[in-house]
C-alpha cells in the first residue's frame, strides 16, 4: 500500500499547473513549484501567510465572498484570466479554479492556477493577422474599384467606355425583348470638334469633351448609359421606354444644350451637337442595326445643321 499522505506532496509537485492549498482561515499550507515559477515567490516565503498577502489582487470582496461560498456550500468557483488580468503577476495570465477539499474534521481550499499566457499570445497574434487581412482586403477592394474604373470607364470624361456599353447594350436589349418595352439608342456627335482642338488647344478640347459628357449625364435618367463611343462621339442607351413621351422628356433636356455657347479656360466657345436616335424594335432587332440607324439619323441632323 502507498501511504498517500506522504505521497501526495510528490504528486502535487509534478502537476503542471499552479497548486495552492489554503486552510479555512486562508493561510497558505502548500505552494507547488509551478506556483513558485509563476509568481517568483518561494513556498517558504508564503507558507502560513494569508493568501491576500501572497497574492494582493485577491484582497477583494468578490474573492472573499467566493471563498465563503466554497467553504459553506462547496460550490466551485472559477475566475478567468480575461476578467482578472493581473491575478498573480503582470507577465502571466492564469485562470483560477477553487474547490473545497474535506480532510479529517476540517476543510481546506484547493486553488488551481492554470497558465493561459500562451493562449492570450496566440489569440492576440490571430487578431493581428485578422486586422492585417482586413486591411489588405479593403486595399484590394479599392484596387478592384480602380481596375473596374479603368476597364469600364473613359479616363478623360468618366462616362462608360465601349466595353461597358457592350455589356449593358446586350442586357438592355434582352430586357426590352422580355418586357415588350422600347430600347432607345441616341448617337451624339460634337460638331467641329477638330476645329475646337485646333483653335483652343487639345487641353481645352479635352475639357469641352468632359463638359459634353456631363451635360449628357445630367440630361438623362439614372438607368440610362452615357458612353464615349469614339473621339467626339457619344452613345446614350435609354432602356424601358414605354412611350415616345418618355424619350421626348430626355431629348428635350439635351436639346437645351444642343447649340449653345460655353466659357472654357476663358474662351467663349460655340458648342453644337448632332443627334440621331433609333428604337428597338421599330428601327432594328440588334444593337448593330440600332447603331447604324441612329448614326444615319445623326448624319442627317449634322447635314441639316450645316445647311439648315
Amino acid at each position: 500500500m502507498i501511504d498517500m499522505d506522504s505521497f501526495l506532496p510528490s504528486i502535487l509537485n509534478c502537476i503542471n499547473e499552479g497548486i495552492v492549498i489554503l486552510t479555512e482561515d486562508l493561510r497558505v499550507t502548500y505552494w507547488n513549484p509551478v506556483m513558485e515559477k509563476l509568481t517568483d515567490k518561494k513556498q517558504d516565503d508564503v507558507r502560513n501567510i494569508r493568501i491576500e498577502k501572497a497574492l494582493p489582487y485577491l484582497d477583494q470582496n468578490f474573492f472573499h465572498n467566493a471563498v465563503d461560498r466554497v467553504i459553506a456550500g462547496g460550490t466551485p468557483v472559477f475566475f478567468s484570466a480575461a476578467m482578472h488580468r493581473r491575478m498573480i503577476s503582470d507577465s502571466h495570465q492564469v485562470n483560477l479554479k477553487m474547490n473545497r477539499v474535506a480532510y479529517n474534521n476540517g476543510v481546506a481550499i484547493l486553488l488551481e492556477f492554470i497558465d493561459v499566457t500562451n493562449q492570450f499570445y496566440q489569440i492576440s497574434q490571430l487578431r493581428d493577422f485578422v486586422r492585417q487581412l482586413s486591411h489588405l482586403n479593403s486595399q484590394l477592394q479599392q484596387k478592384e474599384k480602380v481596375i473596374e474604373k479603368l476597364a469600364y470607364y473613359d479616363q478623360l470624361t468618366g462616362v462608360a467606355n465601349r466595353a461597358l456599353f457592350d455589356k449593358f447594350a446586350d442586357k438592355y436589349l434582352n430586357l426590352a425583348k422580355q418586357s415588350g418595352l422600347m430600347l432607345g439608342l441616341m448617337f451624339v456627335d460634337v460638331n467641329e470638334f477638330k476645329t475646337i482642338n485646333d483653335t483652343y488647344g487639345h487641353n481645352t478640347g479635352d475639357k469641352v469633351m468632359t463638359r459634353v459628357a456631363s451635360l449628357l449625364t445630367e440630361s438623362t435618367r439614372k438607368n440610362d448609359i452615357v458612353c464615349r463611343y469614339g473621339g467626339d462621339e457619344f452613345i446614350v442607351l435609354m432602356p424601358e421606354i414605354s412611350t415616345f413621351n418618355d424619350y421626348r422628356k430626355i431629348v428635350n433636356q439635351i436639346d437645351v444644350n444642343k447649340k449653345r455657347h460655353i466659357v472654357q479656360d476663358g474662351y467663349d466657345i460655340s458648342l453644337s451637337l448632332s443627334i440621331g436616335v433609333s428604337f428597338y424594335p421599330d428601327d432594328g432587332e440588334t444593337i448593330d442595326e440600332l447603331i447604324e440607324k441612329a448614326d444615319e439619323c445623326m448624319y442627317a441632323d449634322k447635314h441639316e445643321s450645316r445647311h439648315g
Binding site: F78, S80, A81, A82, M83, F120
Partner: peptide, 8 residues
Amino acid sequence: IDFDTVKE
C-alpha cells in the same frame, strides 16, 4: 478567452 469569460 471568450469561453472562459462566459464560464466565469
